[in-house]
Design a protein around this nucleic acid. Structure first.
Lengths: 223, 223
DNA sequence: AGACTAACTGAATGACCAGTCAGTATGGCA
DNA sequence: TGCCATACTGACTGGTCATTCAGTTAGTCT
């Protein structure tokens, strides 16, 4: 093993065959991260290839060496972000604890706040607009939405089976809860002034409590 | 008062004094309608001034004669559309009938369907994305959202006061219902395949029934 | 070491488009 | 009737930006 390979080995999850492949993977990841920062800052429509180049300290030409087109760059970035968000949701929902605790954890993780996950919200609200006319983005958005509903449904189903919850139709309930959370997140992201994070969590808990057939107070003791 | 001010006032009022002012008002309205069609077809970000010109069979220069900039054109169009949508909602909600009937009417009017009101949804989903970074659009979107919540709140309050509904906090309930409807509309507009209009109305009615303290069956008899 | 090839640069290209402007046509008023 | 403000035209301009490509640098292989 060369010194080069050892240097990059930790940076990438998969173990590529050569240092070159490693470098390519690292560079692609770097460009995708820069792309996400640019899109967050300027929006999908206003993001420029040159911005990504500058953001990652690289020439404009290199972007097109790694990605066939601007569209491919944006789409790939979005898919990567979607997979990351889904993984995070699954991890939280599938973690330890009662179904109630996990549901609450998902809600608190999901609600946008000043601490940073707003980034995802900004990205997805922007993506919804693009999804109206871009098939790739619509597919990615659909996958993410579907996965979210699945995650919620699984937690609700867990709670129903263990007797914690009383929910006659976990699938429909999950769908409705997901829609409500989308609406809540949208509103608070767009009009931060109109509602505090605490109020929003309260709204989400209220709806969730109804969905799972428990009183709102079931959540109250959690921080 | 200068002639210009007079002309502008006429353009806004319903009965213009002169043929010229009439012409200007008609032209502006025509251009705004064309703009809406273009934005619906191509999206906010992709809409071109030349498209609007072609759509209304007019030279490109004329657009800038009536509107200071592309941004002003889009913003004005959006504001006009928002006012139209709000007026429609108020009319439905303030019409005759029991509070329950009116609430159901609002829901059915609100849910996107194949018959045409999808246009509004497409427009607003697109606008949400732009609202992330455009202050004017954010303000318009906020006004529309606020008016929607008000409309829902008024109906809920009516029903509570008349004894039809049992709702301890009409304001919070309206907010939650509005968020749910946004989420529902978003999903069905983006992924039409995943849910029928009937199912969606059922979801909305279910949530509304909970909000107003009635069983879902209260709605069932309506067409 | 030398050859080969992949990663990378940055200037050039050309398409696209909002906004401008000099000029034309026309309805209404003196 | 003739004058003039105004509605309107369409060619033009200046700037932006994705994409290309000829050339350069630097790992890797024998």
């Amino acid at each position: 093993m060369t010194r080069f390979v050892r240097r990059y080995a930790d940076a990438v999850a998969q173990t590529p065959a050569s240092g070159r492949a490693n470098q390519v993977a690292a560079r692609r990841a770097e460009l995708l991260e820069a792309t996400e920062r640019v899109v967050l800052a300027r929006g999908f429509a206003e993001a420029r290839v040159a911005d990504v180049a500058q953001e990652s300290g690289v020439s404009g030409g290199l972007i097109h060496y790694h990605f066939a087109s601007k569209d491919a760059l944006l789409t790939t970035m979005l898919r990567t972000a979607a997979e990351r968000d889904i993984a995070r949701a699954r991890k939280v929902a599938g973690g330890p604890g009662t179904a109630l605790a996990r549901l609450d954890k998902v809600i608190r993780e999901f609600v946008p706040g000043p601490r940073g996950h707003d980034a995802s919200w900004t990205l997805w609200i922007d993506a919804w607009g693009s999804a109206l006319r871009n098939t790739h983005i619509r597919d990615i958005s659909a996958e993410l939405d579907g996965a979210w509903v699945e995650v919620l449904e699984q937690v609700i189903r867990d709670g129903t089976e263990s007797g914690e919850f009383e929910c006659p139709d976990p699938s429909a309930s999950a769908w409705r809860l997901a829609a409500l959370l989308d609406g809540l997140g949208l509103r608070i992201t767009l009009q931060r002034a109109s509602m505090s994070r605490a109020e929003m969590i309260e709204h989400a808990r209220f709806a969730a409590a109804h969905v799972i057939g428990l009183p709102l107070e079931a959540f109250e003791n959690r921080p």
